Amino acid sequence: MQIIVVSRHLKSARTITIMPRHVLGALAVFFVLVFLSSAFFSFISLHFRLPIVENILLSVQQQETRQTRDYITNNLNLMATRLGELQGRLLQLDTLGDRVSDLAGIKPKAADVAEKPGQGGPFLPAPLSATELQQEIERLATAVDRQADDLAFMEFKLLEKRVEERLMPTTLPVKNAVFGSGFGYRNDPFAGLRSRHDGLDFAAPTGTPVVAAADGVVLTASYHQEFGNMIDVDHGDGLVSRYAHLSAMDVVESQIVRRGDKIGAVGTTGRSTGPHLHFEVRMLGVPQNPATFLKRGEDFARLQRR
């Protein structure tokens, strides 16, 4: 950029050429002057304690202090609220844990039930600091997590107990039947000699429904030379129930059955002297007394006996 200067004092016109570096230099000098002026004014103001400047600084400090105080107060209020929530949650979990442990049949640890020593004295408030409040929150959060883990374990035990009960043959396989031969030794009805009887006999008219004593999978549904029409139901872990001398079989091998499902009908097939159901319970192939399981049900006590 060029500037032409014309004056009556000058014999001829002058031309001034302004380069980019000249502009940059002028801007730099301008900013330096502004900075020095501001610094000088600040120094004079602070040194001579001008009222206007002091008021401005005091106002700024008060505003910063107020903002900091509000921030701390809000955080403390939030932390106190969180602490109260954790305390309430822990109390609820403790109460729920006691009820669930009773249902699950799990006794709490001795340390948990031990009585605390006596305490007393006047109430002297001692507010927690921010650090102590944070530590208390962390302690309660840990206690809540631990209690939640204990409840999860008890839930698992309840589920396990429920599954065991579903798979335990406790339902009477024939309703309104008459109790016949028991488990153990007896005189054989055909030979008249002492023999072993590995199950229970339930006498009922031919065609009376026979139901599954528990949940399971049909292991066998076929004809046996001595047991006649026979159904074996696998309940898992080596536990099997057997239903023999049936007049009809309503299930097939590998079929899933539920407790109380009709699986057949009373009959007198095989080595039998009359219509009845021969019921067995075996654990890993070893005969067990079915009465031990059936007594856990509600119908066994009302069973008619000869």
Rank of each mutant, 00 (worst) to 15 (best):
Q2F: 14
I3P: 09
H9F: 03
M19V: 15
L33P: 00
V34E: 11
F35W: 14
S38K: 08
S42V: 14
F43A: 11
I52G: 03
I52D: 02
V60Q: 06
Q63T: 14
T73P: 00
N74D: 11
L76Y: 09
R82I: 04
G97Y: 00
V100K: 09
S101Y: 03
A104K: 05
A110C: 02
A111M: 13
G120M: 14
A126Q: 14
L133F: 06
D150A: 09
E160A: 13
K161A: 15
E164H: 06
R166E: 11
R166T: 04
T171N: 00
P173A: 04
V174D: 05
N176K: 12
A177C: 10
D188A: 06
D188H: 15
A191F: 11
G192A: 03
R194M: 13
T206W: 03
G207T: 04
G207R: 04
P209E: 06
V211Q: 11
E226R: 14
G228Q: 10
G236F: 07
A244E: 00
L246W: 08
S247W: 08
M249Y: 06
V251S: 06
R259S: 13
I263V: 08
A265Q: 14
G267Y: 07
G270Y: 04
P275W: 02
V281P: 08
R282I: 01
P290T: 05
A291H: 01
E298L: 02
F300P: 02
Q304F: 12
